[in-house]
């Protein structure tokens, strides 16, 4: 599904807080249909970079566009054309599954008719017919994560940002989650994902690794392993992240 169309471009993108440079002149592109792994140690600057790309934070300098929109001037348009899910905040616990789907779909501008159709379709695909009217708070985490991902792409965004989507879930659910990611890319959605599971880095088309605010490496998992002379992504990560000088 890879094409030459780019969905994210950044050039020397920088964000400073006072005299601390959280993101230091990062330059990269993400192609349409790609699964792009965004790795780095805690405190390397991943969250800051991701917040800029989601239109939530204005950079200090440099350039970036997401889905064709400029991060300085068109951040509201960016928010409409992306999907976002994080482990920390995904769904409203005191709304039912159906209410959450309708709420998030509604926010993304789906009509009532679309909401009904897509909502029913989604509940059926997730096999949650029985749970549709239950409060999300009463469901296991793995289910929440699946619903959360599905609502994040309900409006068929160009790109979906996933911030540690599989943290804490069981090994079967973790793999089912990646099946859903593959399905999403098959339907043309670009996936930008952070994870601390190094086996999941292997599932990405390309992986970037941030160290101390900069991108230290960016390539396919195979090329990275070759470049760093190791047989696993964990090996690549350990070699790079150990060079980090700044604390968290």
């Amino acid at each position: 599904m890879l094409s030459q169309e780019t969905v994210i471009t950044t050039h020397n993108l920088t964000k400073s807080f006072g005299d601390f440079t959280a993101v230091n002149a990062i330059t990269f592109e993400v192609k349409a249909g790609e699964i792009f792994g965004f790795l780095g140690a805690n405190g390397a600057g991943k969250t800051t970079a991701m917040r800029i790309l989601c239109g939530l934070l204005s950079p200090t300098s440099g350039e970036a566009t997401v889905a064709g929109f400029d991060v300085y001037k068109e951040n509201e348009s960016i928010k409409k054309h992306i999907g976002y899910m994080s482990q920390k905040f995904s769904l409203f616990e005191d709304l039912t599954v159906r209410e959450n789907i309708e709420f998030f779909g509604g926010i993304y501008g789906l009509s009532r008719k679309e909401l009904k159709e897509k909502g029913n379709d989604l509940i059926q695909r997730l096999g949650m017919g029985k749970e549709a009217e239950k409060l999300v708070g009463s469901l296991p985490l793995g289910w929440k994560q699946k619903i959360s991902f599905s609502t994040a792409i309900l409006h068929q965004p160009k790109i979906v940002f996933l911030d540690e989507p599989t943290g804490g879930v069981d090994p079967i659910t973790r793999r089912q989650f990646w099946d859903m990611i593959y399905e999403a890319t098959d339907s043309g959605i670009t996936v930008f994902v952070t994870t601390h599971y190094m086996d999941e880095a292997e599932y990405c088309n390309r992986v970037s690794i941030m160290v101390d605010g900069s991108i230290s490496a960016l390539d396919t998992p195979n090329n990275l392993k070759h470049q760093f002379d190791t047989d696993s992504m964990e090996g690549v990560f350990l070699k790079l992240a150990r060079q980090a000088k700044r604390g968290e």
Partner: peptide, 9 residues
Amino acid sequence: TGVDPVSRK
């Protein structure tokens, strides 16, 4: 949980 592989080690 949520800690990178280096810090976990």
